[in-house]
């Protein structure tokens, strides 16, 4: 469960303060499937980085599964990313020259987990590329690479997957496949999935769309009636909490 309160991110360029996010409040419950949309420069990537614990806000509180992330050290954030968050990127971000199976094992290595191979195979099976596990990224199609990346995000059994334009480098058909994979993971495993995208047809797969502009959330609603398989079901609880209270 995610709770952002008064999150601001201000970059300093010399003497000029450039706000990328301003006073954002956002709650995401477990098992949500949502998209963050907005034009470039709107602050959606910054929000994504903060949600993914890659970056810390300048102001505000971020509570993830009962932990206050905004006060954590870099190493502590690394551990949170390792255990609770999976990342999927537009450009896949697989390591060069490494076979798929090793790509997927990577987060487990940093966790110091046992049974790495078995877990990695299972993750590759879950996204349907288990037959490609000895292939290197250059030997895989874009869709297959993105599936390996999803398997890598999935293998640690995270509570949330952050996907930054995951279909941006894929054709329409492959995009659909990848989106259906996300949808399946969300439904079957109750994994929270947060997307950043500017493609409405991709956002349409989700069940909640947040629009962001100039560092502020401008709209937060389920996708329109045209969205396939979109059944708005998540009632968002907007009841504000005092920022300091952490659920046990």
């Amino acid at each position: 469960m995610i709770r952002l309160r008064g999150i601001s991110k201000i970059y300093r360029a010399g003497d000029v303060a450039v706000p990328a996010l301003l006073d954002v409040d956002l709650d995401i419950e477990d098992g949500e499937f949502l998209a963050i949309m907005g034009p470039s420069g709107s602050g959606k990537s910054t929000l994504m980085n903060i949600l993914g614990c890659l970056d810390r806000p300048t102001r505000g509180t971020y509570e993830l599964d009962g932990h206050f992330v905004h006060t954590m050290s870099d190493d502590h954030l690394a551990r949170v990313r390792n255990r609770r968050i999976g990342f999927v990127f537009q450009s896949f971000n697989l390591l060069p020259r490494l076979p798929a199976i090793d790509q997927v094992e990577l987060p487990l290595i940093y966790r110091g987990a046992r049974n790495r191979r078995r877990l990695a195979i299972r993750a590759l099976e879950a996204v349907g590329v288990a037959d490609r596990m000895q292939h290197r990224p250059t030997q895989l199609s874009g869709g297959q690479q993105q599936r390996v990346a999803i398997a890598r995000a999935l293998v640690t059994n995270p509570t949330m997957i952050m996907a930054d334009e995951p279909t941006g480098a894929l054709d329409t058909k492959t995009s659909g496949d990848v989106m259906r994979t996300f949808d399946q993971l969300n439904r079957e495993r109750n994994i929270t999935i947060v997307f950043v995208t500017h493609e409405p047809e991709v956002a349409a797969y989700t069940r909640r769309i947040i629009h962001i502009r100039d560092g502020r959330i401008t709209d937060d609603s389920p996708p329109g009636q045209t969205a396939p398989a979109a059944t708005p079901r998540q009632a968002v609880d907007w009841a504000p909490l005092p920022p300091d209270t952490a659920p046990a």
């Binding site: 993914g52 890659l54 690394a78 390792n82 971000n93 390591l95 990577l106 966790r111």
Partner: peptide, 16 residues
């Protein structure tokens, strides 16, 4: 650099 970024994203700490 990018590889380091990927490793950090999936949970590598500074020490790693």
């Amino acid at each position: 650099t990018r590889e380091i970024g990927i490793r950090k994203a999936v949970g590598a700490r500074r020490g790693d």
